[in-house]
Write a protein that binds this DNA or RNA. Structure first.
Lengths: 211, 211
DNA sequence: GTCTATAGAGTGATAGAC
DNA sequence: GTCTATCACTCTATAGAC
């Protein structure tokens, strides 16, 4: 149903206070990250958003539907919040991979390694029990990997021709998630740093024949 | 309080039907793995164990205490169930690493990639909210890494002298957990295989100067 | 679109008989 | 050590006024 009156523009995304729906998504995203999906009660989301239950169930059919909304938003935010800033920081395609991992490091440090990766947490918690949410988690991972893969393709001959760029991109995600998990468990950044250092060493050896 | 009567041996671990405490731990471990900790109700544990709540609260002070029992049991089972069988399968210290990863692969396949790693799942779910459980998760990870590190030390000169064995062992855990997470999300073994293949390539390059 | 009030089921945990 | 019965609370979701 498109808006027929051309003077009334529909989204107006940024300016002014966030809409109720936005505040609900914000509150839910943060609580799901801090406590997990199952451990977060709808009441906590309502309180954090400053909203009553009637409003929540006006925008979302259920708590699970709210989760889907949160995962959709993560999909939307990937490029503007994660990928684009990295590409603005450096043009070197391989360095972009490590700048990306460096920004996850900053997030871990900012939160004292308490929270971890929002998608990774949800991936393990809901993949086996919430099929629709699982598919959106997969979409998040796929888009992330596709962006990294683009950089690896841009690296051209710096990587051996027989190195599968898509597989290497997934491997970068593996190292990020595995390192983040250990950092969260240990509440220390060192396991994450050690993981990224391992990947760095691997990539260094892959690009050793650099011209 | 040690048993003073020498004819009454205390543990008698294996024979006969499992004790009530054991059945509760079995049921809880499986449900926490299938549904997660928060999403598992005490009632479900009771039903699966065929026990009434009075018995559960005789052995465990709370649901959280039951979680600690599950994590303690994982610590106990690491060597007999995970490490020793791998060491029986091959003497080659580096191959042991990949046999270990191969056995996790078998478990993923047996469960259609639905469940993932019991410790990894709990690590992300409870690390920020259940401090005592978090410490037991860390102990699980530490013991796992220590076993892998021993193998890497046994590899001697096949690995360059400047390669930190402990760091590489943690990196193996990173790859296992990161790969397992993606396999669980995608419900396909391929992301796990790709992750292990990436590690294999890395280790191959590390041991390229093998005598 | 947001509010109040509440339904109805489920939660972790406890008391006390046996 | 295991049972039954039950408490006090929280959970997700809905109804209906405004």
């Amino acid at each position: 149903m498109p808006e027929t009156d051309p003077s009334a523009r529909p989204p107006e995304p940024e300016p002014g206070p966030a809409s109720t729906r936005e505040r609900l998504l914000d509150a839910a995203a943060q609580l799901f990250l801090e406590r997990g999906y199952a451990a977060t009660g709808v009441a906590a989301v309502l309180e954090k958003a400053g909203v009553r239950s009637g409003s929540l169930y006006h925008f979302f059919r259920s708590k699970e539907d709210l989760l889907l909304g949160v995962l959709d938003r993560y999909i939307e935010l990937l490029h503007p919040v994660i990928i684009a800033p990295v590409e603005a920081l450096t043009d070197d395609p391989i360095e972009r991979v490590f700048v990306l991992l460096g920004r996850y490091r900053e997030f871990l440090l900012m939160t004292d390694c308490r929270l971890g990766c929002p998608i990774g947490n949800l991936a393990l918690e809901i993949s086996d029990t919430h099929e629709e949410a699982r598919r959106k988690v997969v979409q998040n991972f796929e888009n992330w990997c596709a962006a990294v893969e683009r950089w690896l393709v841009d690296a051209g001959k710096r990587l051996p021709a027989d190195v599968d760029r898509a597989a290497l991109a997934r491997y970068v995600l593996t190292v990020m998630e595995g390192g983040q998990m250990q950092a969260k468990a240990q509440k220390r950044i060192e396991p994450y740093d050690a993981s990224v250092a391992g990947l760095r060493d691997h990539v260094l050896r892959l690009t050793a024949n650099d011209e």
